[in-house]
Amino acid sequence: MSILIYIDHADGQIKKSALEAISYGAALAKNLNTTAEAIVLGKVNEDLAGLGAYGLSAVHQAADEAFDKADAQALAKTVAGVAGTLSAEVVIFAANANGIALAPRVAVRLKAGLVSSAVALPDTHTEAGFTVKKVVFSGKAFAHVKINTPVKVITLTGNSYPAQKAAGTATVSQLDLHPDLSKVTITGVQKVEGEVPLTEAEIVVSGGRGLKGPENWNLITDLAHVLHGAVACSRPVADDGWRPHHEHVGQTGIQIAPNLYIAIGISGAIQHLGGVNRSKTIVVINKDPEAPFFKAADYGIIGDAFEVVPRLTEAIKAIKG
């Protein structure tokens, strides 16, 4: 019996969402009186034993570089196999692009119930049994979902459980495993260089139609850069082609939960709020005092974004020195 966490990585680096998943799995293991172990497929340039600091007792690595190009079908087969060997009780993934590809497949292979997009540790001792809180209705509500099966799979929403580092060392073992031949071939990767990925960002600065046009986006990016944050936008902005679709946050875009969300020139339609209302602190800057977003905000300024935002950027710069 153990908790198995899938460690997602890119370009040799372990993702922040994977560290959150490890801390989450370690806390769950503690509640269930068992151990937290992790699986790493492919090459990483980080000290795996050091992951013990996040609460892992063991890391199992299959370092074959073929895993870095393997498709979800091949990866899921390997993860499910290792989960079976370790008699893992719960398998945990980050709810990101790879998690959404792998977790459903692993769940089917293990005949396990799956909860996607968990936002809190499972309740393990309730009357209902093992229940997990997750986002439903695109952020407008939460559900407590009971898993009926002996083996369980969970994907953890980014920024909903903090990565907690203490002391400790994990044992690292190498697995002599190799992926099946991939049916999917990766032919190109286009990354926006130097930008913080939206789903992992702790600070997000977002612009709406109030910015009047894409030529004014430097207001948003300047503020984001000062805060080392990511840039996002509302749906109309993406629909009009002012900004790329992958920056659209809201019900039909990306759902995020950063520590700070600054909405500039966004009125706050219910569909937009669903995608951002789990942000811990929300700042709204809008010239319309009736903008519904103010009701969902922690701090608000009624004013012209073209005047307010540059002054805010300067004020933050001054504090940061």
Binding site: K111, A141, K146, I147, A296
Partner: peptide
Amino acid sequence: DRLTEAVSFELPAAK
């Protein structure tokens, strides 16, 4: 087989 079921729901805490 029924592997999972939503047992209860809640709305996000209001600001």
